[in-house]
Amino acid sequence: MTFGPAERLGRSTTDFVLGLGKITLFSGQLLKAAFRRPFRFRRLMDELYNIGVLSLAIVIVSGVAVGMVLGLQGYNTLVRFGAEESLGAVVGLSLIRELGPVLTALLVTGRAGSAIAAELGSMVVTEQLDGLRMLSVDPLDFIVGPKALAMVIAMPLLAALFTVLGLMGGYLVGVLFLGVDPGSYLSALEASIDFRSDVVGSLIKGFVFGLLVAVISTYRGYTADPHSAGVSAATTSTVVIASVTTLIFDYLITALWGV
């Protein structure tokens, strides 16, 4: 007997709740594995290289480009009110509070989160994780943990770099191309940014987004279906779920803590 739409709705609801439960359990196991001795320092360095250093190029280019666009758009709007001295505040606040952490999270999801899911997924397909288990090496401890930890460490650092480079991009366009006074750009920037509410908030966002992307990408890769379509599904859903979750959490953090 079938119940049509009601049945489908019920099933997708239970699937969703079940998925949330599984990913929570997985996060718990991952957290336990991260604190298990011996600490895999060598593996962490490798993953920091893959996730952090190799993401630098895209973060630098995007940061400067976004800052330049903000400078140009902000100038064109502000100059109508004769308030182009406030350009520093516009560029600074939008980069530090929103664009820096959020765009970095989206970029890193696309560049490194997808790679994590694809790598873990193909390890599932080729039974490498089973091979490790046979050697009584816990793959969570040896493969997955360092990837997740490196993501959590790299994300706030990349977000801060993105923000600073964006400020430079805004300075480049505003001061050098459009002729805003350098002193008023910098003083508007310094006057509008508060350490506790803006800078700390930006770092918290970077850290939370790092956690989200780390858990989602490793979970989707680790639980990929053991065939090639499973790997591609894991990669795609990592990018989609991590991006949407990042944006939802961004709204929640801003709404709840006013960052």
């Binding site: 360095m45 490798d46 920091l48 290289y49 952090g52 250093v53 630098l56 600074g92 530090i96 460490i153 790299a154 706030p156 650092l157 990349l158 801060a160 770099l161 923000t163 600073v164 920037l189 310094e190 940014i193 508060d194 350490f195 506790r196 803006d198 800078v199 930006s202 770092l203």
Partner: peptide, 27 residues
């Protein structure tokens, strides 16, 4: 080389955070 690059990356990140906190945030 790889380790040095990781070191530079972490250093650059912390410098960026320090700049945002101290110079701009007025910590």
């Amino acid at each position: 080389t790889r380790d040095a690059l990781v070191g530079l990356f972490v250093l650059a990140g912390f410098l960026a955070i320090a700049y945002l906190s101290v110079s701009l945030g007025g910590a």
